[in-house]
């Protein structure tokens, strides 16, 4: 008869300890161990969330301690959902999210596919490629404002060199048509390596034997790619999309450094807009309602996505 590890641990527990916890059920013991974490979670996560929801129904302003906050029902929600500026901000966020994820997945997967091939200097190239994601977003944002400088910026110079256009004739972060793409380019430059690493993990998890079997069946490289590589890497890709989606929905520092949300409100993402409402205009109640709406949106979308991800994994 084999003894389970739990029974072995119980047998080796000194009698003193055993006596002390005598009378406590396993369930009670489990609660004792878990309670500090739950209390901490309640204090720093759940309580602020409930408090935020409560504030969202008031006109409270944190910079007016002498003014009584009034309960105003759903007025904050109504205002937000009918505010044209908020919708512009949502559109800017959607544009940023879609294109950054699209480029990062395409380029990240392509790089991972190339890096996965055995060649000389493979490790060195991997290290070089992942360098951008090791930098601070604030530094990257600041650094790219110089690259985008129309008179002295390297980016404008390269575009000018390749297209023959006058480098000072366009401003990536100063023009309405270009600024949304300027932030997409920088985020893609910085975070494509992250997607690449996840894809690389996926590619390396595929056993060689599957490809060998496909070779025996005389499957073409193209067919192997579509019927083996893509389906087996897909859960990893979806995970990368989830991570980048959540991160970019919260994007703040990089864009603030690059464009400050301008020109106009072209690159004012929801997180920047929310920060302005909460900590510059000090409309605490309004900002709380805004935060609740964003929370529900992200939570809802993420839940649907995770379900889809699980289905793909089950296949």
């Amino acid at each position: 008869m084999s003894i389970s590890p739990i029974e072995r641990a119980a047998a080796t527990t000194p009698p003193g300890v055993a006596r002390r916890v005598k009378g406590l059920s396993d369930r009670a013991l489990a609660w004792i161990f878990v309670a500090p974490t739950i209390l901490l979670l309640l204090a720093i996560n759940i309580f602020p969330l409930i408090w935020t929801i409560r504030l969202s129904f008031t006109d409270y302003r944190v910079n007016r301690p002498n003014r009584e906050a009034e309960f105003i029902g759903l007025r904050n929600y109504e205002r937000i959902l009918t505010d044209g500026d908020i919708w512009i901000s949502m559109q800017a966020t959607a544009h940023f999210l879609f294109w950054t994820i699209f480029f990062q997945v395409v380029i990240g997967f392509a790089l991972a596919y190339l890096i996965n091939k055995k060649f000389r200097g493979n490790d060195l190239w991997t290290t070089i490629i992942v360098l951008p994601m090791m930098l601070s977003p604030a530094v990257v944002g600041n650094f790219w404002t110089f690259l985008y400088q129309p008179q002295i910026g390297l980016f404008n110079y390269v575009v000018g060199f390749l297209t023959g256009a006058d480098p000072s004739s366009f401003s990536m972060i100063g023009e309405v048509a270009l600024a949304p793409w300027a932030i997409v380019i920088v985020d893609t430059w910085m975070w494509t390596p992250f997607v690449m690493l996840i894809c690389l993990a996926g590619l390396r998890s595929i056993p060689d034997s599957i490809y060998e079997a496909a070779e025996c069946d005389r499957a073409s490289k193209w067919r192997q790619f579509w019927t083996i590589t893509i389906p087996l890497v897909l859960p990893f890709l979806m995970l990368a999309v989830l991570f980048r989606g959540i991160e970019n929905f919260k994007m703040f520092d990089l864009v603030v450094q690059l464009t400050g949300g301008g020109p106009g409100a072209t690159t004012e993402l929801t997180s920047i807009n929310l920060k302005r409402e909460a900590f510059e205009k000090w409309r605490t109640g309004y900002a709380s309602a805004y935060a609740v709406i964003l929370f529900v949106t992200v939570f809802g979308l993420a839940s649907i996505y995770v379900k889809a991800l699980n289905k793909v994994k089950e296949r």
């Binding site: 309405v176 301008g262 020109p263 106009g264 409100a265 072209t266 302005r276 510059e280």
Partner: peptide, 15 residues
């Protein structure tokens, strides 16, 4: 901030 947004939107963004 309201003035910043309105004026920048017209003068710089050209909207």
């Amino acid at each position: 901030l309201a003035m910043q947004a309105r004026v920048h939107n017209y003068v710089v963004a050209g909207n």
